[in-house]
Computed example of a mutant assay.
Amino acid sequence: MRGADPETVRRALESGEPFPGTAGFAGRLDGRLVRDVLGRQPLFGTPADWGFSPADVSATAPTPVPPGHVRERVDGELVDRRRWSLPDPPVADDTEAVEAVERAVHGAVTGVDDGSLAVAFSGGVDSALVAAGVPDAPCYVAGFPEAHDVAAAREAAAAMDRELRVVELTHADMERAVPRVVAATGRTNAMDVAIALPLYLVAERVAADGVDRLAVGQGADELFGGYAKVVDPAADDRVAATTVRGATRETIRSLPDQLARDALTLRAAGVEPVTPLVADRVVTAALPLPGHLLATPDERKIALRRAAAGWLPDDVVTADKKALQYGSLVSRELDRLARQAGFKRRMDRHVDRYVESLID
Results as ranks from 00 to 15, higher is better:
215 A>I: 05
302 I>E: 02
238 R>W: 01
279 A>T: 03
304 L>Y: 13
329 L>P: 00
278 V>L: 12
260 A>N: 10
284 T>N: 01
327 G>K: 00
212 D>T: 14
269 A>M: 02
291 G>T: 10
297 P>I: 07
239 V>Y: 00
304 L>E: 05
235 A>R: 15
213 R>L: 03
295 A>K: 01
218 Q>I: 13
311 W>C: 06
287 L>D: 01
220 A>F: 09
250 E>M: 07
289 L>Q: 06
266 L>P: 05
322 K>G: 02
255 L>V: 12
310 G>A: 10
321 K>V: 00
216 V>W: 02
284 T>I: 04
300 R>V: 09
303 A>C: 06
224 F>C: 08
301 K>Y: 09
254 S>K: 15
252 I>M: 04
213 R>S: 06
302 I>K: 05
270 G>N: 10
315 D>K: 12
247 A>T: 05
257 D>M: 14
218 Q>Y: 14
293 L>M: 06
289 L>A: 09
250 E>R: 13
302 I>D: 01
288 P>Y: 09
281 R>T: 15
251 T>A: 08
228 A>N: 13
301 K>L: 11
300 R>K: 12
259 L>K: 12
313 P>C: 07
235 A>Q: 13
226 G>F: 08
257 D>Y: 15
327 G>F: 00
323 A>G: 11
235 A>T: 14
266 L>C: 08
223 L>M: 08
295 A>V: 05
244 V>L: 07
259 L>S: 12
276 P>Q: 13
251 T>F: 01
265 T>Q: 03
315 D>N: 14
232 D>R: 15
320 D>K: 15
296 T>G: 03
225 G>V: 05
209 D>C: 08
248 T>Q: 07
235 A>M: 05
277 L>T: 03
310 G>M: 06
220 A>T: 08
325 Q>D: 01
239 V>Q: 01
261 R>Q: 07
308 A>W: 00
274 V>F: 11
269 A>D: 04
228 A>C: 09
328 S>D: 04
254 S>I: 04
282 V>Q: 08
237 D>Q: 11
214 L>E: 00
271 V>K: 03
283 V>Q: 01
323 A>W: 08
322 K>S: 10
230 V>S: 04
255 L>D: 11
265 T>P: 08
324 L>V: 14
226 G>T: 04
303 A>F: 01
